[in-house]
Simulated assay, not measured.
Amino acid sequence: MDSITHTLFGLALYAAVDKKHMEKTQKRAYLLTAVGASQIPDIDVISQFWDNEGLYQMWHRGITHSVFLTPVWSLLFVLLSFLLFKIKDPKLFSLGWLAVFIHDTSDLFNAWGTGYLEPYSNIRLTFGTIPIIDFVFWVILGTAFIASRKNKAKGPYYFKLAWVFIALHIVVQSVQGWLIYNQYENDYKQIALSAGFIPWTYTVIAKNESDVKIFQDNLFTDRKLQYELTSAEETDLDRLFAKKPEAKTLYEWSPFVVIVDDGEKIGVYDPRFYRNGQSFLFEYIDKTQTK
């Protein structure tokens, strides 16, 4: 998910806590833990400042997003709460753990995926059933916020209810995505799914050998072919990887890639992010660099 959504998730967790009998410093500790833990896995973005091996794409959403690291992040915020606010509250660990778990798990549902099982597996898990920015989440949480302003006493109840609707939305989106994915399995060897910004709509990327097709699909209308692409599968990529290590990272990180080998350049791109004739995840070198 995007940073705004992760922040909203943290604020929604904080709002769901009954704070009637809390002191100001305790509320601050809860706010820091809920919002900070909802953001902490994305601390890996700083790796791009020293990455000189083209590994950033693999590092981002890598080990810091591991489900096995969630209690470590939670303990960090328990410690910070004590150092900054002198608060000792065992419930802070549960709140922090839940916040990190929601961050890591929600990222599983995007097309980008996450290293959820690192360091035991470097496979990038992705379901592709929720868009990177899901405005349905914003609407649900915005509705809970408005309701809580009108009736502050029931504020935590409204936000707990919002979490129920968020979970329901994820289930409905994911079940539909799974059903659509299954419709392509008999015809294509490789398939990737990417949810659209409009609820219940999906982009399906399907590949057989060198042929790649991108469809717009949902359960209620016929699929629409958007693009037909050709991958230069016979291309020797060793030269590309030697000159452009980012390309090797992209090749390993993506479910599958489209290989480009024309008169001007050699490269690979992720077709899940293909729009208007190009993918913004495209790594290549000019042909002159291969000599």
Rank of each mutant, 00 (worst) to 15 (best):
70 T>F: 03
105 T>I: 14
65 H>P: 06
112 W>E: 12
72 V>Q: 09
98 L>E: 06
150 K>I: 15
78 V>T: 15
103 H>G: 08
63 I>C: 14
95 L>H: 11
66 S>C: 11
118 E>L: 14
131 P>A: 12
114 T>L: 10
101 F>V: 07
71 P>L: 05
105 T>Y: 15
74 S>G: 01
155 G>C: 05
130 I>E: 04
134 D>C: 13
140 I>E: 01
139 V>W: 02
73 W>T: 02
93 F>M: 00
95 L>P: 07
118 E>Q: 15
74 S>K: 00
99 A>L: 08
141 L>D: 00
105 T>D: 12
64 T>P: 07
82 F>I: 03
138 W>V: 11
126 T>V: 11
92 L>T: 01
111 A>M: 07
146 I>S: 12
146 I>R: 10
84 L>N: 06
147 A>G: 08
147 A>R: 11
95 L>R: 10
149 R>A: 15
112 W>D: 12
144 A>T: 02
78 V>G: 13
130 I>V: 14
112 W>G: 10
137 F>N: 06
154 K>W: 09
84 L>K: 07
121 S>I: 02
131 P>Y: 13
92 L>W: 03
63 I>N: 14
119 P>C: 13
121 S>M: 07
100 V>P: 08
108 L>C: 08
77 F>P: 03
75 L>T: 13
110 N>C: 06
149 R>T: 15
103 H>D: 08
106 S>K: 00
80 L>W: 09
78 V>N: 10
124 R>T: 03
85 F>Y: 11
152 K>Y: 12
111 A>C: 05
89 D>N: 13
135 F>I: 11
120 Y>H: 00
66 S>P: 10
101 F>K: 05
118 E>W: 10
65 H>Y: 05
142 G>N: 02
69 L>G: 11
134 D>K: 10
92 L>G: 02
129 T>S: 09
65 H>D: 10
81 S>Y: 05
83 L>P: 00
104 D>A: 09
81 S>K: 05
155 G>A: 14
144 A>E: 02
140 I>R: 00
94 S>C: 00
124 R>K: 05
136 V>K: 12
85 F>E: 06
85 F>H: 06
109 F>W: 08
155 G>I: 03
85 F>W: 03
76 L>G: 02
80 L>I: 10
128 G>V: 12
116 Y>N: 01
101 F>W: 09
84 L>H: 06
90 P>C: 04
83 L>C: 02
103 H>R: 06
122 N>Y: 15
124 R>P: 01
76 L>W: 01
105 T>A: 14
148 S>H: 08
117 L>G: 08
75 L>S: 15
141 L>G: 01
92 L>C: 02
97 W>H: 12
110 N>W: 04
123 I>P: 13
132 I>G: 06
141 L>A: 01
121 S>K: 09
128 G>Q: 09
128 G>A: 12
144 A>Y: 04
75 L>H: 14
98 L>G: 08
110 N>L: 04
135 F>Y: 10
122 N>M: 15
69 L>D: 09
68 F>K: 01
100 V>W: 10
120 Y>N: 00
117 L>H: 08
133 I>G: 00
138 W>F: 11
152 K>V: 08
112 W>I: 13
126 T>G: 14
96 G>F: 03
107 D>W: 06
80 L>V: 10
